[in-house]
Design a protein around this nucleic acid. Structure first.
Lengths: 244, 244
DNA sequence: AGCGGACCCTATCACAGGTTAATGCGCAAC
DNA sequence: GTTGCGCATTAACCTGTGATAGGGTCCGCT
């Protein structure tokens, strides 16, 4: 639990990727932020199947959603960046069907337990925003299925790198031509349904081709257009997103 | 366009899998049903990237959501059964990121264009139900990612069959120990990220093991428990779902 | 009856990607 | 400075799955 940042001073909201808050709604949200939580890199935020029914917003840092099979094989569903909501599914459905783990040290805004229902009751436009976020996350997952199911390893890795690069840039993380990249090769493998060894081979092909480099915890794209072509990745416009 | 069924006489709602409507809400929904649409097996309901912003509920028949790569490889994201909503993402995000195609002849309830927003404005509890459906669909997609990314072909096919069997039963389709099964092996392949040939091999392994048979457009599970074990599939409780 | 088209099935071959195991490197702990 | 650990890297080998090609059956159409 670290020093809470009041929502009125939110460092995320001014970013170009986020929609400005409407009249009165920011205050409404601020009133329901009950604290702030810090989680260390590698630690769990929500455990698979757990019944933690709090709602969080990722304020700073990276995390990921995952599911696993009984025998331990793990699949990462989705990478979470600042502004993403955590725990909405658990609130709506009854149990959490997936776990969430911090990739870097992470700060989370913690919201009151009745947050969701009160949003729906008193601020329909905000409720629509919440549903927008859910639909948006589903779209990401849809894209992931397409990758894992139908792209080759090389295409998958290329598509993931382009995708994460874009999102990191939108989160204001671009610095000197590169963005932070806290995923290990094991994370990439778990995201793309590959083995670690083959992920390594594939990253090297991209590196040697001058397309992308993930060394030193940072991601540099040497040739964005070329990477996109390799990935068969076509741009989707990204409208500003709501923030809680 | 066939003879519209009034929502008050809905054939789906009485099924045990669906939540009864609350006071006043059924009338509200009924008022916004503007028609009924019939789509032949194999025809498209919504085209990928299309801007059709209407909302449908699948009233009868099977359909599926899919995405494809520029070069034609196709991935099925999700099988749709009666009660599923179609077009919610297009309404919220701006374009439809996926297509929808009918698997059998299909009947759809067509809703007024302002349906979503009016639900949020005047019936918060219904709005929450809508979001519940979105979260529930995302859960299905999460499960699919886990399958495609981390299960072997045999496990994938087994898991899919168990899953569809369960859903078909919940839709009241069980008849004499089997349920209808309108997917061709090509559909299964596109759902699981496999080739048609390997899908065929795998189905036969299951058939010879006495676990499952998909012949003749019907699905018979010879040994549900055994199939679950093969699939590493653990049951999730299915609470009754809302219906529009 | 004959034809064509879906769909299912089988066999063979090739290769992408998995598995296992060992090495190296940087870095924190002591 | 040694030890240990996490992560990236390589190599050798193996296998699950894909690609291609063909045959069979059923069914609707003319």
């Amino acid at each position: 639990m670290d020093k809470p940042l009041p929502c009125t001073l939110c460092t995320l909201r001014p970013l170009p990727g986020f929609k400005p808050a409407r009249e009165g709604e920011l205050a409404f949200i601020a009133r329901r932020k009950v604290g702030q939580l810090r989680v260390r890199a590698g630690a769990g935020v929500i455990s698979e199947g757990g019944a933690d029914d709090r709602i969080y917003t990722l304020l700073a840092g990276w995390a990921f959603r995952y599911k696993s099979l009984p025998d331990g094989r793990r699949q990462i569903l989705n990478i979470l960046l600042p502004g993403d909501i955590i725990g909405l599914q658990a609130e709506l459905l009854d149990a959490m069907a997936h776990g969430v783990e911090a990739l870097t040290d992470v700060s989370l805004c913690v919201f009151a337990r009745d947050m969701v229902w009160s949003v729906f009751r008193v601020h329909p436009a905000l409720a629509l925003d919440l549903t927008w976020l859910a639909a948006h996350e589903e779209r990401l997952v849809d894209d992931a299925i397409l990758s894992i199911g139908r792209r080759t390893a090389l295409e998958r890795v290329a598509a993931l790198l382009v995708h994460l690069y874009k999102r990191a840039v939108a989160s204001g993380l671009l610095d000197g031509g590169s963005v932070p990249f806290p995923l290990t090769q094991a994370h990439i493998a778990d995201t793309l349904g590959l083995s670690v060894v083959h992920t390594n081979r594939t990253l090297q092909r991209l590196r040697r081709a001058g397309l992308a480099d993930t060394a030193g915890g940072r991601l540099v794209l040497g040739d964005l257009r070329g990477l996109r072509r390799v990935a068969q990745y076509w741009e989707q416009p990204a409208p500003p997103r709501p923030l809680f």
